[in-house]
């Protein structure tokens, strides 16, 4: 995996109060630079913060937002919890599968999208909803979802 983490060091460790709180933001930085939480990325974080490697791994794998495998250029996180299901998010999942050929936790062969079926993302009132990278989309329909995804190349 190429990227800024190539030489095994983390470019920047964001400041967040006490030193104990540095691990989470450091993992985010590593993930941003590297795409996902590979062994090398975790090693880099462990080295930068001088935290035992296994502790970093235990921490990183506990949290859903840190990818356990490489992901595409854009991560589509579609909520599939109760309120979104009531408003049709299962249907959306099927449409995405038909259009892009990906089931949850898969990536399109061209590396454009990775799909994640999410627990509640706090948009139940405007369900169904999804996060594409860091952007929120709500009130999704089988029509508007594809035009939204068009923007992500």
């Amino acid at each position: 995996m190429k990227g800024p983490l190539e030489n095994g060091t983390l470019k920047s460790v964001p400041e967040c109060g006490e030193k104990e709180t540095a691990l989470m933001p450091a993992l985010y930085t590593a993930q941003k630079e590297h795409g996902w939480m590979s062994i090398e990325a975790m090693e880099a974080v462990a080295g930068a913060l001088d935290i035992p490697k296994a502790r970093v791994k235990g921490f990183a794998t506990f949290y859903d937002m840190f990818g356990k495998k490489p992901v595409g250029r854009h991560v589509v996180r579609l909520c599939t919890n109760v309120s979104c299901i009531l408003s049709g998010s299962e249907e959306l999942l099927l449409r995405l599968r038909d259009k892009f050929g990906i089931a949850p936790d898969e990536t399109t062969p061209d590396g454009r999208f990775s799909l994640v079926a999410m627990e509640c993302i706090g948009a139940c009132g405007t369900a169904p909803a999804m996060l594409v990278d860091n952007d929120f989309y709500e009130d999704l329909t089988t029509e508007n979802i594809f035009s939204i995804l068009e923007k992500y190349k």
């Binding site: 062994i39 975790m42 035992p52 490697k53 296994a54 502790r55 791994k57 235990g58 794998t61 506990f62």
Partner: peptide
């Protein structure tokens, strides 16, 4: 600190790094 529990819940597993 050589081993850890990875993942969580029913997917938890004890592993070295």
């Amino acid at each position: 600190h050589a081993i850890t529990i990875t993942n969580r819940g029913s997917k938890s597993c004890v592993e070295p790094f």
